[in-house]
Simulated scan of single mutants.
Amino acid sequence: MNRITPRQWAILEALRDHLAECGVGLTVRELGERVGLASSSSASHRLHRLEAARLLTRSGREWTTVTLTGAAVKLLAHRPLVGSRRVV
């Protein structure tokens, strides 16, 4: 994946925050609600794209078993801040 879209950044950040709080990933429906996606199908498609880009991995079939890869953690850590919002 050459470029991370604003929505993908939002998904990665939502997963990172939820994993830190709860220790498990969000369901597809919860993730869609958090980042403003209209359908669970859209959320699932975006998760599959991030998984194909090797930014996410799962230990089971469900998305609640998701973890961020080292590459995703590195991307999130190096994303510059502007004011209180991150630059895309």
Rank of each mutant, 00 (worst) to 15 (best):
M1E: 07
M1K: 05
N2H: 15
R3M: 10
R3Y: 14
R3I: 15
I4Y: 03
I4K: 02
I4E: 04
T5A: 13
P6T: 09
R7S: 14
R7N: 00
Q8C: 11
Q8L: 09
W9G: 03
A10T: 00
E13G: 02
A14L: 06
R16C: 00
D17L: 03
D17F: 05
H18L: 04
H18E: 08
A20R: 10
E21G: 04
C22K: 12
C22H: 14
G23N: 01
G23Q: 08
G23H: 12
V24C: 06
G25F: 05
L26F: 09
L26A: 04
T27E: 09
V28P: 03
R29C: 09
R29Y: 07
R29P: 01
R29I: 15
E30T: 02
L31K: 00
L31I: 11
G32S: 04
G32Y: 10
E33Q: 11
E33V: 08
R34K: 13
R34N: 03
V35G: 05
G36A: 08
L37D: 04
A38K: 15
S39R: 15
S40V: 06
S40C: 14
S41C: 07
S42L: 14
A43S: 10
A43P: 01
A43F: 04
H45R: 09
R46T: 03
R46Q: 13
R46V: 11
L47Q: 03
H48S: 08
R49N: 07
R49W: 01
R49M: 08
R49K: 11
E51W: 10
E51Q: 11
E51P: 02
A52Q: 15
A52I: 02
A52G: 05
A53V: 04
L55K: 02
L55F: 12
L56K: 07
L56P: 01
L56N: 04
R58Q: 08
R58E: 05
R58K: 14
R58M: 05
R58L: 11
S59C: 09
G60M: 14
R61C: 06
E62R: 15
W63Y: 08
W63N: 08
T64S: 09
V66F: 10
T67L: 14
T67S: 11
T67H: 06
L68V: 10
T69L: 07
T69Q: 06
G70A: 12
A71W: 08
A71G: 07
A72C: 09
V73T: 10
K74P: 00
K74S: 15
L75H: 04
L75E: 07
L76K: 06
L76N: 00
L76T: 00
L76A: 10
R79S: 06
R79W: 04
L81V: 12
V82E: 12
V82K: 00
V82F: 12
S84A: 13
S84L: 08
R85P: 07
R85C: 13
V87H: 11
V87G: 07
V87I: 14
V87R: 13
V88S: 10
V88M: 06
